[in-house]
């Protein structure tokens, strides 16, 4: 049997692997859903699902940014700090200038951070790891400096009422964050599948030198993906800040690693050139529903972290086996 599988594998070559790549995580996801459904009757209810989707939306928006960066074989470690910084600048601006300027300033803060990281990678030729690590510290520090390390809780009531909708509102059945996440997904899906930018992102991740020798402006693509990662982190941060109705200087801390974890579980390669935002949906939902299911079952968050680590190992190991066999 084993031999036969190996044989088919060899004959079908890439095609067989591609299918596994595409469906491995979705299959695991479905199995997990079924198991959790059997373990608890509180799991598969409309309300619970809506809850998980709402909670996962923020991580998904961040992970989409990470996905773009990973596709070019980069890495963005600064996302979490950018989220913290944007939370602070947004909240402070909301107090000072009102709703629309507050949101715009928040978005621009994230875009600026991402662009600086991008320029460091694309123009100054720093390694993505180093450039984004530096940005992580800088944004982190700025978030703390902005209000002496204290949260911003004094947003005026008339602003907060409207602002809260972004994070806590509903349109019919749908939570607003979920709608934002779906819009982000659709836009990025089409960008990656249908536009020159998308094609070039894969080209740069697949082989930088070949991309350059094909006339692709590699530097610019690198700058763009980091800028987008900053922008998406900012968007996620605004949703999060709205939900908390306050600016929090350390709220983003966990997000860099979570977005990396979700993206990698989804099957986007750390080495770039393979994967996409559809993969990331499954990565995020996998973590979201797993955490939720374990919560319902009363398993401690400490144990959950160990399990997420195990899932990352398994999913990446599977990808590497697939690669080796071919």
């Amino acid at each position: 049997m084993e031999k036969a599988v190996a044989e088919t594998n060899r004959i079908n070559g890439r095609k067989f692997n591609l299918d596994l790549n595409k469906y491995g995580i979705p299959i695991a996801f479905v199995i997990m859903m079924i198991v959790l459904t059997f373990l608890s009757d509180r799991f598969l209810t409309l309300n619970n699902i809506r809850n998980v989707l709402r909670q996962s939306s923020i991580l998904f928006i961040v992970a989409c940014g990470q996905t773009l960066v990973l596709l070019t074989s980069g890495i963005d470690l600064s996302q979490g700090s950018v989220i913290s910084l944007v939370s602070m600048t947004t909240a402070l601006s909301l107090c000072k200038y009102g709703l629309v300027p507050g949101v715009i300033i928040g978005i621009l803060t994230g875009l600026a951070c991402g662009s600086v990281t991008g320029l460091l990678v694309g123009k100054a030729k720093l390694l993505p790891f180093v450039a984004s690590l530096a940005m992580q510290y800088i944004a982190d520090g700025l978030a703390l400096i902005s209000n002496n390390g204290l949260p911003v809780t004094n947003i005026p009531g008339n602003v907060i009422n409207k602002f809260f909708v972004i994070g806590g509102g509903y349109v019919g059945w749908f939570p607003v964050p979920l709608i934002i996440a779906i819009v982000v997904f659709l836009i990025l899906y089409f960008v990656l599948k249908k536009t020159k930018l998308g094609r070039y992102i894969y080209a740069v991740g697949g082989n930088k030198e070949a991309a350059r020798l094909s006339g692709i402006n590699v530097d610019r693509i690198q700058i763009i993906v980091f800028a987008l990662s900053g922008l998406l982190s900012a968007l996620a941060s605004i949703v999060l800040t709205a939900r908390m109705v306050s600016g929090q200087p350390i709220v983003g801390q966990e997000y860099s690693m979570q977005s990396l974890g979700a993206t990698v579980i989804g099957g986007t390669l750390l080495t770039g050139g393979k994967g996409g935002v559809t993969n990331t949906i499954f990565g995020v939902l996998f973590i979201g529903f797993m955490t939720n299911g374990l919560n319902i079952l009363g398993i401690s968050t400490f144990v959950q972290r160990v399990l997420i680590g195990a899932v990352i190992i398994i999913s990446v190991y599977m990808t590497s086996i697939k690669k080796k066999r071919s």
């Binding site: 894969y202 697949g206 082989n207 030198e209 070949a210 991309a211 020798l213 050139g273 393979k274």
Partner: peptide
């Protein structure tokens, strides 16, 4: 392989 093509594309 290193300059002409993206092998995984």
């Amino acid at each position: 392989k290193n300059q002409g093509l993206s092998l995984i594309a």
